[in-house]
Every structure is written in C-alpha cells, then in structure tokens.
C-alpha cells in the first residue's frame, strides 16, 4: 500500500518541518522557470534560487535546488556511488522530496551524478519507448564549470542557427554518447548541467557537432 503520511507536504499551506526553500512556492517556481528556460534554449545558462539549508556533501546546493523543484514521491531517483554512500544525502532527499531512491538506473525518472568523470554510460538509463519516449530518465550532472572545457557546437530546436556550449567535468567519450543519444530521437535521455549557481541543459533533440581541437 502506498502512503505518504510520513512525507512532508509542501503545498504552501503547511509549513515544512525544516525549510528547504525559504519560500517553497515562489522559489520552486523561479527554479523551474530557470530549468524550463535552459531546456527550451539548449546551451544557455540561468541562475538558480538556492535552498536556505546547505545540503550534505557531495550533494551541491544547485543539485539540491533542482531536486526540490522537480522530485517527489512519483519520481524514482537514481544516485551515483558517492551520493548513494552518503546516508545524509539520502536522508536529505527523502525528507525534502519524498522521492524513492533506487539502484537500477533503468527505472529512474531522474539520475543525480556527483562524479561525472566516472559516470555510467548514458545508455544505461531509461531511454523511453517509441510509443512513450517521455518515460526516459533525466540525467543531472552536478559540480559543473561552464566555459572552460572544449566547446561543442549545438543545433536544433530552441537554437537560432547554432550555439556553442562548454561544460565539465564529463566522462571520456561523453560527447560521442550525447551524439548517439540524439540519433535515437525521439527516444533518449535529457541532460541537465548544474554548476555552482547556474544551470544549463541539453535535451535529446539537440544535435551536437564536435569542434576539432
């Protein structure tokens, strides 16, 4: 039987026991608009509103803000090893979002990756089906620095002509994986990149061209 009695309900009427967002309604809305904006304009960046409480490491404040904005008990979440090994991180996510935490990446609605350089292949996550491509995993890479790594060229929906995008750290052959991910459109994962205070995204619809070094 399903019950959510033990989950704090942040519906704007009840006061959460411990504040996630200072203003649960409007901060979540602002974060969502930032995420929506970057998903609709791949390669662009937006500022996130942070939680009032500093999340336990290795969960970054930006990752926590995204989690509070999008996760709840309807969204199974997969964590990479460093996050999974932290009881404090799991407790934080369970308390603030109520999301079930699972170990099978293929069943996850969201995946949180704190160590992108050693992340599992994108193909290990749920790719959605031809009939329900929306059921794929959204993968969130945290601890990103924008504009320092080798740039790639983006084209497709949301991009006027082309755009340049650079982020890191990423695993080896990451961009080849992203290219393959786009080739199986409409199936495929969507990527969110969380920096220190900013967020960027690459939906599966974006075509990537690797820039020769």
């Amino acid at each position: 039987m399903e019950t959510t009695v033990s989950t704090p309900v942040q519906n704007g009427r009840s006061t959460p026991l411990s504040a996630g967002f200072l203003d649960p309604v409007h901060d979540a809305q602002a974060c969502f608009r930032a995420i929506m904006s970057v998903m609709a304009r791949p390669g662009t960046r937006q500022k996130l509103v942070m939680c009032s409480e500093v999340p336990p490491e290795p969960l970054t404040p930006a990752a926590a803000a995204i989690a509070l904005t999008l996760f709840d008990y309807d969204t199974p979440v997969w964590l990479d090893r460093p996050l999974m090994q932290s009881e404090a991180v799991k407790a934080f996510l369970r308390f603030h979002t109520g999301a079930p935490i699972l170990s099978e990446p293929v069943e996850a609605a969201f995946a949180l990756v704190s160590e992108p350089q050693s992340m599992i292949p994108l193909a290990s996550f749920n790719q959605g089906s031809a009939e329900y491509p929306d059921q794929s995993t959204t993968v969130i890479l945290t601890g990103q620095t924008f504009g320092k790594a080798q740039a790639v060229t983006l084209a497709g929906p949301g991009i006027k002509d082309t755009a340049s995008f650079s982020t890191g750290p990423t695993p080896p052959v990451f961009w080849d994986q992203v290219v393959s991910n786009n080739r199986q459109f409409p199936r495929g994962v969507d990527l969110i990149f969380a920096g220190t205070a900013e967020v960027a995204a690459l939906p599966r619809s974006t075509r990537i061209t690797l820039t020769e070094a």
Partner: peptide, 8 residues
C-alpha cells in the same frame, strides 16, 4: 484536498 494515502 491533500492526499495522505490509500485505504485498505
């Protein structure tokens, strides 16, 4: 209405 869960 807030939802607490499902009955038996």
């Amino acid at each position: 209405l807030p939802r607490f869960g499902y009955s038996q």
